[in-house]
């Protein structure tokens, strides 16, 4: 599905509401694979400067010598008719890009944390991060072949996940599985957000 390509877009035409979801997790856990499985476009890559928005570059002299670097993020898109468009961003895996998470998490409806049972500890930082930030998140265990299968309860215990955090198995390569993961996340976000502040 796409925006109506045939129609001109006069200024002032109502644009869809953009919604952002994140896919987090350790290095090589299948973030790009998941984005790709559900996206209507091939995953695109965008980059942010490492310095200017986090540290602030005010001295523009000698820019040529400055070792300014960028960090890359993959993202995909799913549009729902005229009204909503969902953007799915894979967060940069390496921890040296931590600061980028704040920008990505700002205004995000929620996050999927992908876990690999062979390297469960890799997703601890993501769990900590979204817990601290109060971003709705779920954990999806990506089932790689050859990985010992764990009971979900064991995974929940190992990650120290509260009982209300949804935890499910997935295969990031399969669209139906990715779709189930996203539905689980959106439902969870809806539940959290429909509580009154007093309940929270």
């Amino acid at each position: 599905m796409d925006y109506e390509r045939s129609e001109r877009t006069p200024a002032g035409r109502k644009l869809p509401t953009a919604i952002k979801l994140l896919v987090a997790g350790g290095f090589g856990v299948g973030k790009t694979t998941l984005v790709s499985a559900v996206s209507e476009i091939r995953p695109l890559r965008t980059e942010e400067f490492l310095t200017d928005r986090s540290v602030g570059v005010d001295d523009l002299e000698g820019v040529e010598e400055k070792n300014t670097t960028t960090v890359a993020m993959d993202f995909g898109r799913i549009s729902f008719g005229e009204d909503y468009v969902l953007y799915l961003f894979g967060t940069p895996g390496q921890e040296r890009f931590w600061f980028m998470w704040d920008e990505l998490a700002a205004g995000a409806l929620g996050a999927v944390i992908l876990a690999d049972t062979r390297r469960l500890a890799d997703c601890f930082p993501s769990v900590d991060y979204f817990e601290r930030r109060d971003t709705p998140f779920i954990v999806a265990v990506n089932c790689f072949e050859g990985a010992r299968t764990y009971e979900l309860d064991e995974v929940r215990l190992a990650l120290g996940l509260k009982p209300e955090i949804p935890l499910l198995l997935c295969d990031a390569r399969r669209r139906q599985s990715g779709k189930e993961v996203l539905i689980t996340l959106v439902r969870h976000a809806m539940e959290l957000n429909s509580r009154t502040p007093a309940d929270a």
């Binding site: 877009t9 035409r13 953009a18 952002k20 300014t68 670097t69 960090v71 468009v85």
Partner: peptide, 30 residues
């Protein structure tokens, strides 16, 4: 993942902030 970037600064003539607007990654532009 990361490397020196010179061309983008040249393209913006060294500017790092837009003269107008506050653009998030998912701000829609038409």
């Amino acid at each position: 993942h990361a490397g020196p970037v010179v061309r983008p600064y040249v393209m913006t003539r060294g500017r790092t902030e837009p003269v107008r607007g506050d653009f998030s990654l998912i701000s829609l532009v038409v």
